[in-house]
């Protein structure tokens, strides 16, 4: 790898720009995609790899290319700077997620409780508008307070977030769905919300609940049969 390619690749990653490093096999000539200098065919192949987050080898004509996907990190937005969030943050970081905690209640959202993580004390609707969840973002609400959870879920439902989870019992969740329906969300849209949140592993403690939530996020992301639980 030449110093120029390495520098360009590192810069794209710092800027959280999705890129593909294309390596001609077996000779090792490289370029970064998308690029106007590359063929339309090669750029299209790279785009497909980015969308599916799936590095691999493609053959175009008689030429083999290894297309190495460098997508920005997956993100998780945690609404509620509560005890379970404190357990969730380090687990999520260990899985490679970029983590943001949202809670306008400054007594909860303190640096002491959440060291080394981005904390937003904006109201959840404003915070969500700023964070702009995309198809590489998971949203989890943990406050149990409709004033905070509902606006976050409303924004999450209007986004392409690949995972939306809401902490709360079946009863709490049923009441939540009634409120969100009143905001204009259809049943099909509401079925995107995972509630009660997390895989059913009889989690009790905060770290166990955090584990069940992250396990469910992984299951959804990779299309595991475990992800196909029915909405409450």
């Amino acid at each position: 790898m030449t110093p120029d390619i390495l520098a360009a690749l590192e810069q794209a990653r710092r800027e959280k720009r999705p890129v593909v490093l294309a390596t001609s096999l077996p000779d090792g000539a490289q370029c970064l995609l998308p690029s106007p200098a590359a063929s339309a065919e090669l750029n299209a192949a790279a785009e497909q790899k980015l969308v599916h987050d799936d590095s691999g080898t493609v053959t175009l004509g008689s030429q083999n290319w290894f297309l190495h996907v460098y997508n920005p990190p997956l993100r998780i937005v945690i609404v509620g700077a509560v005890h379970i969030a404190q357990a969730l943050v380090p687990f999520a970081a260990a899985l490679g997620y970029g983590v943001t905690v949202v809670d306008p209640r400054r007594s909860f959202a303190t640096d002491e409780r959440f060291p080394n993580v981005t904390v937003s004390t904006d109201w959840p609707d404003e915070a969500m508008d700023a964070l702009a969840p995309d198809a590489r973002t998971a949203v989890v609400t943990l406050t149990h307070d409709p004033k905070l959870d509902d606006p976050a879920l409303d924004r999450a439902l209007k986004s392409q977030a690949f995972y939306i989870g809401a902490l709360g019992s079946r009863k709490t969740h049923a009441a939540r769905l009634v409120r969100l329906r009143a905001l204009g969300h259809s049943d099909a849209a509401l079925a995107r919300i995972r509630g009660p949140v997390g895989l059913s592993i009889e989690a009790v403690t905060a770290p166990e609940i955090a584990l069940s939530v992250l396990a469910e996020i992984v299951a959804v992301r990779h299309g595991s049969p475990l992800a196909q639980k029915l909405a409450a």
Binding site: M1, L6, L9, E10, R13, T23, L25, D53, D54, S55, G56, T57, F66, H68, V69, Y70, N71, P73, L74, A94, L95, G96
Partner: peptide, 28 residues
């Protein structure tokens, strides 16, 4: 997949920047 927790490219780049001679092996 590229959701690796360990950022091997960054480690390799840092080693090289520190004056090491570095090779990178990638599963294709």
């Amino acid at each position: 997949m590229n959701t690796e927790t360990d950022d091997i490219l960054a480690i390799a780049a840092a080693w090289r920047a520190a004056g090491e001679q570095v090779a990178l092996a990638t599963v294709t």
